[in-house]
Deep mutational scan, measured.
Amino acid sequence: MIINNLKLIREKKKISQSELAALLEVSRQTINGIEKNKYNASLQLALKIAYYLNTPLEDIFQWQ
């Protein structure tokens, strides 16, 4: 199981879903879906999320 901390980290950094989506060149709905565990981010997208949030990938998506 993967624990998804994207919403928590994004909100801590005061970045909206729309802002993050624009940086990543995806839709806001994609970010929303990832945060609600409706969609799994591809490895490429997960790495981009970590880069733009300046946060280690394993802090955003944790295996349990």
Rank of each mutant, 00 (worst) to 15 (best):
M1V: 12
M1D: 06
M1P: 10
I2S: 08
I2M: 11
I2C: 14
I3L: 14
I3D: 06
N4P: 04
N4C: 09
N4K: 03
N5F: 08
N5H: 08
N5R: 08
L6W: 01
L6Y: 00
L6A: 01
L6N: 02
K7T: 07
L8T: 15
I9Y: 09
I9G: 02
I9T: 05
I9M: 07
R10T: 03
R10N: 02
R10Y: 05
E11M: 13
K12S: 15
K13A: 13
K13S: 09
K14T: 05
K14I: 04
K14H: 13
I15S: 00
S16I: 04
S16K: 09
Q17H: 03
Q17I: 13
Q17K: 06
Q17P: 04
Q17D: 04
S18G: 13
S18D: 12
S18H: 10
E19N: 10
L20N: 00
L20E: 00
L20I: 04
L20F: 05
A21R: 02
A21C: 04
A22M: 12
A22W: 06
A22S: 13
L23A: 15
L23V: 12
L23E: 07
L23Y: 14
L24R: 00
L24M: 07
L24K: 00
E25Y: 07
E25F: 08
E25I: 05
V26K: 01
V26R: 02
V26E: 03
V26Y: 03
S27I: 04
S27F: 03
S27E: 06
S27C: 06
R28Q: 14
R28V: 15
Q29H: 14
Q29P: 06
T30R: 10
T30N: 04
T30L: 15
T30Q: 08
I31F: 02
I31R: 01
I31N: 01
N32A: 15
N32R: 15
N32L: 09
N32Q: 15
N32C: 08
G33F: 13
G33R: 15
G33L: 15
G33W: 13
I34T: 02
E35S: 02
E35L: 04
E35I: 04
E35P: 01
K36H: 13
K36C: 10
N37S: 10
K38R: 12
K38W: 13
K38F: 13
Y39Q: 12
Y39W: 12
Y39V: 15
N40G: 14
A41S: 06
A41K: 02
A41G: 05
A41N: 02
S42C: 05
S42Y: 04
S42E: 07
L43E: 07
L43V: 10
Q44I: 10
L45S: 01
L45W: 03
L45I: 09
L45K: 00
A46L: 14
L47H: 10
L47P: 00
L47T: 12
L47Q: 13
Y51V: 08
Y51A: 09
Y52V: 15
L53I: 03
L53M: 06
N54L: 06
T55M: 07
P56S: 08
P56R: 09
P56K: 10
P56N: 08
P56V: 05
L57V: 13
L57I: 11
L57W: 05
L57M: 11
L57F: 07
E58C: 11
E58G: 13
D59S: 09
F61E: 01
F61C: 04
Q62W: 10
Q62L: 08
W63C: 09
